[in-house]
Amino acid sequence: MNFIRQKLELPNQGKKLLLHSCCAPCSGEVMEAIIASGIDFTIFFYNPNIHPKKEYDLRKEENIRFAEKHGIPFIDADYDVDNWFERAKGMELEPERGIRCTMCFDMRFERTALYASEHGFDTICSSLGISRWKNMEQINDSGIRAAGHYEGINYWTYNWRKQGGSSRMLEISKEEAFYMQEYCGCAYSLRDTNKWRMENGREKIKLGEKYYSNNNL
């Protein structure tokens, strides 16, 4: 591997990081950079937005596989999908990056911050921001808000896209042949993605069939 990133340090002299992970492709490069920097961290997988359960299990198992390969502790949090749908009521037709996504980030980061506070972590962050499809400011605002509820917890706003991070993310995804998710994750993003595909003469998404390889992207 010829990719070189500067050594990272947690903000405010933090010692222990809880990394919220949304999926293996997004977290692969983030994990690699944190490992290379010698930071003590644990993966926290809490994503009740992911729909349907088959897709949730595929994304989670890929993340577990990569964490186990590198000996990183993995916290498998609850899949309280009913709670997510309850919170999303009235937002079913909101666009991507709108208030429904803010609610979703808030929900996931609130649980991450709570776990961090209860289990001796002083810093939280997320792999969500590495995706070019996400609004980094929106994500960071949710993270900072969640961390603010607990004394001694900081949200790390590091930009994982910098210094070739996005390119390395794709390289790792192909090297590991990760499962390739083709929509953000929730039922409404699946609905809207399939609607766009049908309007543009493409087939609907087929869950569990597409994987990264050196022959794609």
Rank of each mutant, 00 (worst) to 15 (best):
H70P: 00
C186R: 07
L93K: 13
K89S: 09
F121Q: 01
H119L: 05
F109Q: 12
W133F: 13
R145G: 03
S167R: 13
R65F: 11
Y158Q: 04
E92K: 11
G90V: 05
E182F: 14
E171T: 09
M180K: 15
E61K: 02
L114D: 04
E92H: 08
L128C: 04
C104I: 04
K162D: 10
E118R: 11
D106V: 00
T112A: 14
L114V: 06
D106L: 08
K89I: 08
L170E: 02
D78R: 09
I144K: 15
R87Y: 06
D78F: 08
E137Q: 07
M169E: 09
S173I: 09
H119V: 06
A116H: 04
N140D: 00
M136G: 00
R100Q: 01
K162L: 02
N135A: 03
N63W: 08
K174P: 03
E96A: 07
H119F: 05
G120A: 05
R97I: 11
Q163G: 07
S126G: 01
A177E: 15
K60H: 05
G71N: 15
F121R: 09
L58W: 00
S166L: 10
C186H: 03
A88H: 09
R168P: 06
F74A: 14
R108W: 01
A146V: 04
R145I: 03
I130M: 06
F74S: 15
E110Q: 01
M136N: 00
Q181I: 13
I130V: 12
T102F: 00
A116Q: 06
K89Y: 11
L190I: 12
T112G: 09
I99C: 11
C184E: 01
E94K: 07
C101L: 08
T123H: 10
E176I: 14
T112I: 11
F178S: 10
E176L: 15
S126Q: 09
I75S: 11
E86L: 12
W84I: 01
N63V: 06
S117Y: 13
C186K: 08
F178A: 15
D76C: 14
A77D: 14
A146K: 06
R87A: 00
Y158T: 09
R132H: 01
K134P: 02
N83I: 01
Q138N: 12
K89Q: 15
I72R: 12
A147D: 13
G120I: 01
M180V: 01
Q181Y: 13
S131F: 10
A67Q: 06
S127D: 03
E151S: 12
